[in-house]
């Protein structure tokens, strides 16, 4: 029966090459591709564009349907929740209005800090372009997504992407009409950050394992730094890709590492990654040439 089946298959396709060898050839080609694409990452962009320019218009269309559908779904499912929420919110409102007065006082303090760090001007002054998220990664391992603006709209690789107040990620690839963004919660992402209040440097790295709990990892904080839960972490001056002073999130759960030299903590991102729809792209690339000169 098996032999017959094989024969039948061969007769039908009329190609004598055993699939085994085709698989081997595919394997070899793939290994070559991996090496080539790893070595010449920049030069692969046109090839990627060819695939992308066919796929992204479709994604754009379908995504719109998706947005409408999920809006409708949300509408139905959240009705009950809303009633419950409403009562609890009223309670909260009372508490918060009290807190608000305290915060008002803090605000003055914060403004002083901002002036101190000269952030205010930089942060507000960055030119921004709004873009819509049209599709996300095709598997569960990474956190990259595609936005509907590209080099036509003045975007370039290494531009920073924000949503609301918080940093979302970095553009890693730009094509004519769409670009790819790697978010800071992606497992491969590392951002040099600094604590706004104490100027202690740290590294914020995405972690798939922690991401499901809504936090990411902060490492490399000096053990002498005196920090508290809730301190803001912003992008650092020394980062060579991220513009300084963009809010990344709030730190919590500080622990001293086993080496006793550094501390680690968790960070709750300021941007909401679950419902990412519109993002802001800062159309200014950090000029790291100066930095490199200093480093030399």
């Amino acid at each position: 029966m098996i032999e017959k089946g094989e024969k039948r298959m061969r007769k039908k396709t009329k190609i004598a090459i055993d699939p085994k060898y085709i698989l081997m050839i595919i394997g070899i080609i793939c290994i070559l591709l991996i090496l080539v694409s790893f070595r010449f990452q920049e030069k692969m962009t046109p090839v990627r564009s060819a695939v992308g320019s066919v796929i992204t218009p479709m994604q754009k269309g379908i995504n719109q349907i998706g947005v409408v559908l999920s809006d409708k779904m949300d509408y139905i499912t959240t009705m009950k929740k809303l009633v419950k929420e409403n009562t609890s919110l009223k309670k909260e409102l009372a508490e918060i209005s009290g807190e608000n007065k305290l915060l008002q006082q803090d605000k003055y303090e914060l403004e002083n800090f901002r002036k101190l760090y000269d952030l205010d001007q930089q942060y507000e002054g960055y030119p921004k372009v709004a873009a819509r998220v049209i599709s996300s990664d095709n598997d569960n391992w990474y956190n990259t997504f595609i936005i509907d603006k590209g080099s036509e709209d003045g975007l370039a690789v290494n531009m920073n992407v924000m949503a609301g107040d918080g940093l979302v990620g970095l553009i890693t690839e730009v094509n004519k009409s769409y670009s790819k963004v790697r978010s800071i919660i992606d497992d491969e992402s590392n951002v040099a950050g600094t604590f706004l209040k104490t100027s202690d440097g740290c590294i914020v790295s995405g972690d798939l394992q922690l991401m499901n709990q809504g936090v990411i990892q902060i490492t490399g904080i000096s053990s002498s730094a005196k920090l508290q839960d809730g301190y803001e972490v912003v992008t650092s001056q020394i980062s060579n890709k991220y513009l300084p002073g963009i809010l990344i999130g709030y730190a919590k759960d500080f622990t001293t590492d086993s080496s006793n030299m550094t501390q680690s903590a968790y960070l709750t991102p300021a941007a909401d990654f679950a419902g990412l729809d519109m993002v802001l792209v800062i159309t200014k690339v950090k000029d790291s040439d100066d930095l490199e000169d200093i480093m030399k």
Partner: peptide
Amino acid sequence: FMYSRVIGI
């Protein structure tokens, strides 16, 4: 081609 940094895997 759309999402991976390294092509082939």
